[in-house]
């Protein structure tokens, strides 16, 4: 407990929380929508909150809901979640140096809590600060705050969804949420190519059994994105 009571841990925690607080408001609609969508596909409140605590990832939760609802095979659900989460491998590699001096227990715990918002907010200072306790506080305060907001507002969504009529098609909120995540990515040309190729392949191969088309579409999309990236790089190189 020495770490958590140290003045530098507390100073780091205060600063991390202050920096992240205004941004954290953006989590609220996501958590509400995720809560409502989970109930929308037929989960009980207990199942929905179980998923929310175990998975703790809006994109992976929303992205797997249509597959869970359709009764897709387990391996495809897990593969889709992995594809949606692969960006975290890059975030994890980028922020890893910020945990120098800490043991593997703290690293697993911090890794589990890694989110896009905290990564974007905290990475720079995590790398440049020497005091390891300050760094841990600076990372954990906004991470735990995100966790708390996520659980609280997902629960609010879960409870609110129960009082909304079934024919309001709440499950479509998951589709809207996934689109809202996709749109800023697709503003970059190679990303747009990856999305267009992935989307088109998924439609064309929709008839394949076991939703194999989705799996193929992810690979086609990655390949198309890489090809567009390569092509764009060559054009810029010769210009």
């Amino acid at each position: 407990m020495h770490t958590f009571s140290s003045p530098s841990f507390r100073a780091g925690a205060r600063e991390g929380f202050r920096t992240f607080l205004p941004l954290s408001v953006g989590l609220i609609p996501w958590a509400l929508v995720t809560g409502m969508s989970m109930v929308g596909i037929g989960m009980t409140p207990l199942q929905a909150m179980g998923m929310n605590v175990i998975v703790f990832a809006g994109t992976a939760q929303l992205g797997t809901l249509p597959l869970i609802a359709a009764g897709a095979p387990l391996w495809l659900i897990v593969a889709t979640a992995l594809a949606l989460n692969l960006r975290f491998v890059i975030f994890s590699a980028a922020i890893a140096q910020g945990f120098r001096g800490h043991g593997s227990g703290a690293r697993w715990f911090c890794g589990h809590l890694l989110t896009d918002g905290v990564f974007a907010t905290c990475m720079a200072k995590m790398l440049e600060t020497d005091d390891k306790n300050w760094r841990l506080g600076y990372y954990l305060a906004p991470s735990l705050w995100s966790w708390l907001l996520w659980q609280t507002f997902a629960l609010t969504g879960v409870l609110a969804a129960g009082s909304i009529p079934k024919n309001w098609s709440l499950e479509f909120m998951a589709t809207i949420a996934l689109m809202v995540l996709l749109i800023p990515m697709a503003k970059m040309r190679p990303m747009l190519v990856a999305a267009a190729a992935g989307g088109a392949t998924a439609v064309l191969l929709n008839g394949l059994p076991l939703k194999l088309g989705l799996f193929a579409a992810i690979f086609v999309g990655i390949g198309a994105g890489l090809a567009a990236d390569h092509w764009q790089g060559r054009r810029e190189g010769t210009a």
Binding site: G198, G199, A202
Partner: peptide, 15 residues
């Protein structure tokens, strides 16, 4: 890896 999320999101949403 950078392209995996966009490809997966589109592959779910578009169909």
């Amino acid at each position: 890896l950078r392209y995996a999320p966009a490809a997966a999101l589109a592959a779910i949403v578009v169909p």
